[in-house]
Nucleic acid binder design. Structure first.
Lengths: 161, 161
DNA sequence: GGCCACTTCTTGAACCTTCAATAAAAGCCC
DNA sequence: GGGCTTTTATTGAAGGTTCAAGAAGTGGCC
């Protein structure tokens, strides 16, 4: 294993810390939401995303892209949320293959009810602990990483294909 | 919802970017390892952690704490890895309740075989894109977040109990 | 129009994680 | 030692995610 392949001491330490932080954070938020809202964090993110769109509705594919999950995962999730009455499917008027996912009144009410607790959890885990400077840094870093993973070009990551 | 409850514009943007980055990253690494090593990222982390300990072995509870997962999850994971022949359970000599999880030769070989690809994926997704300064920042930020979640005291997060 | 490739969304099976319940041993206290 | 609480690890069921396959519609091309 040459130097190209491996990580420096600092990179290793950073990577480990990052893994631990994301692990603990996801766990923490999942538990908080499961207890207070009866759904995992991802499902909450779906409702939350819908609530911010005009008409509180979005095409399935667009919703999947927005929250960074596969269509398959979204299909299963929406099926469950529909069972809860928090979301409803409508046929897309312009594309007969398409479905539009719509946040119901009950879904919106659930979001209003549970948002404060969720935001408090996020705040206390992250933003109450970071300086304003660090918040800005974390935003920049996250955007760089997300950008790099958005459309991994074969030329950029040759070992992946 | 008052100002205490909500996030500022910048915090919201950071939070969203962070979610996207971690989502895409986990997905990316899981897929890479599933394809090249036949296991999810978490399982790889278990083997990797074991490989760095004296005797390549660790008590179940300690291993679970090290990689930040529940004992239950570890039990299931180890059962699967044992089925692959990558890990073996031994009785703990000093505590008859205890089990020691041991990395087998086959498990170590698998790690050696797949480590370069995994490290390359991590490197290209993260460290090749961040400046040295940002790497240091990410380490600091991650440690702050992880610390805060390690043992959430009732006094610190009153809404959680 | 007819064909073909692509897109959209869903499905079921396999696998993974969570949660609550359990068994067994250890540690404490008298 | 006997009783009690705590710790260690596992189990099975319920729910979530992934993957490959498939149904149905769209759009381009001739």
């Amino acid at each position: 294993m040459n130097a190209m392949t491996w990580l420096t001491e600092e990179e290793q330490a950073t990577w480990r810390a990052f893994l631990h932080a994301t692990m603990l954070l996801e766990d923490h938020l999942d538990r908080q939401l499961q207890r207070d809202a009866g759904m995992p964090h991802m499902y909450y993110a779906l409702l939350s995303t819908l609530s911010e769109t005009p008409g509180r509705r979005m095409r399935m594919t667009e919703l999947a892209e927005q929250v960074k999950i596969t269509r398959s995962r979204l299909s299963h999730a929406v099926a469950r949320l529909e069972g809860n009455g928090w979301v409803r499917r409508e046929n897309c008027p312009t594309d007969r293959r398409g479905q539009v996912c719509v946040l119901t009144e009950a879904g919106h009410a659930e979001l209003v009810r549970t948002a404060p607790g969720h935001v408090a959890a996020v705040r206390s885990a992250i933003f109450d602990r970071l300086t304003a400077e660090q918040t800005r840094q974390l935003g920049d870093i996250s955007r760089v990483i997300a950008e790099g993973l958005h459309q991994p070009e074969g030329a950029d990551v040759p070992w992946l294909r």
